[in-house]
């Protein structure tokens, strides 16, 4: 099973990024092999619609779950369309969240927000 977490730095000891769409990197963690890899989020510097583009990246990496502090409506629409589950982080430690996930303790993210900003290029 593969899970994806928005992160600040390319380090498993680092912190979860508060933003999903504009996180600099994504951590992809394989729960079977315990292997972690980092991908650059090429949506981070989008003028608008970063959430949609980042969500596309999540889907293209064929992960089974996304663990994030928050997620906007448009991004959630994309991720839900691909039947990927969105879990809510418990704190900002990457390791703590992976551990909780492995113990099946993470909750589904319920409060999808309508977006914090005007759409780009206004």
């Amino acid at each position: 099973m593969k899970i994806l977490i928005p992160v600040e730095k390319k380090s498993i000891d680092g912190e979860v990024c508060k933003s999903f769409g504009r996180a600099p990197f994504f951590l992809v963690y394989d729960t079977e092999t315990k292997a972690s890899s980092f991908i650059k989020n090429n949506a981070a510097d989008s003028r608008g619609g970063a959430g949609i583009k980042a969500a596309q990246l999540v889907v293209d990496n064929k992960v089974d779950g996304l663990i994030t502090p928050r997620c906007g409506q448009n991004a959630a629409d994309v991720i839900n369309a691909a039947n990927i589950k969105i879990y809510k982080t418990i704190n900002n430690s990457i390791k703590d969240n992976i551990e909780e996930f492995l113990e099946n303790k993470l909750e589904i993210l319920g409060d999808i927000h309508p977006g914090f900003h005007e759409y780009g290029g206004k």
Binding site: S46, R47, G48, G49, Q56, V59, V78, Y119, G120, G121
Partner: peptide, 12 residues
């Protein structure tokens, strides 16, 4: 699309 108004999910 520079505004990322289109995504491609599950062949759609």
């Amino acid at each position: 699309c520079k505004f990322n108004a289109i995504a491609y999910i599950k062949d759609k």
